[in-house]
């Protein structure tokens, strides 16, 4: 059993999986949107590329406290996840155009999320007291 695993590893092409960009030729293959993407140890690693950048997400909670969790996805695969429990920054390194970031959390007063790179929807976004539920696509 252990042998079969060792043999399987060299055959994988993780770079091909991670280099998929929305709208590129690589997406011509029909994909089933309803199936969860396979999560592997290699897909969890953000590959460095010339156009990679560090993205900082600034959370500011006022008039109360807050907590938030940000998840970075590339081609449907989770590649980074960070949480914050007070005002501050979350930094994702090696972010590429077409990556997406989801933000889930709660604030008891008022919250503002600022991302230091162009996104859809545009930031900053403001939230009144309540549940924070949003997502961004890196341009």
């Amino acid at each position: 059993m252990a042998k079969s695993v060792k043999k399987a590893i060299p055959k994988r092409k993780p770079q091909a999986h991670l280099s998929l960009q929305p709208g590129s030729n690589a997406t011509t293959k029909p994909t089933n949107h309803t199936n969860m993407p396979k999560l592997t140890t290699t897909s969890l690693v953000a590959e460095s590329a010339p156009h990679s950048l560090q993205v900082s997400i600034t959370f500011t909670f006022t008039g109360g406290i807050g907590q938030a969790t940000s998840l970075l996805f590339r081609n449907g695969v989770l590649i980074n996840m960070q949480s914050i429990s007070s005002s501050g920054n979350i930094r994702f390194s090696e972010v590429q155009s077409g990556d997406s970031i989801s933000v889930n959390g709660v604030c008891t007063g008022h919250a503002v999320i600022v991302i230091d790179t162009p996104t859809v929807p545009v930031s900053p976004q403001q939230f009144a007291a309540g549940i924070i539920l949003t997502g961004y696509l890196i341009q």
């Binding site: 929305p22 949107h33 998840l71 996805f73 081609n75 989801s102 859809v120 929807p121 997502g135 696509l137």
Partner: peptide
């Protein structure tokens, strides 16, 4: 939310879809 944000980039015309999803949230 995580599922939608993960899936939208792989859909055709992801930018308007993400804006539409943001309007929904």
């Amino acid at each position: 939310n995580n599922q939608m944000v993960a899936k939208i980039p792989a859909m055709p015309n992801p930018w308007p879809l993400m804006q539409e999803y943001s309007n929904f949230t």
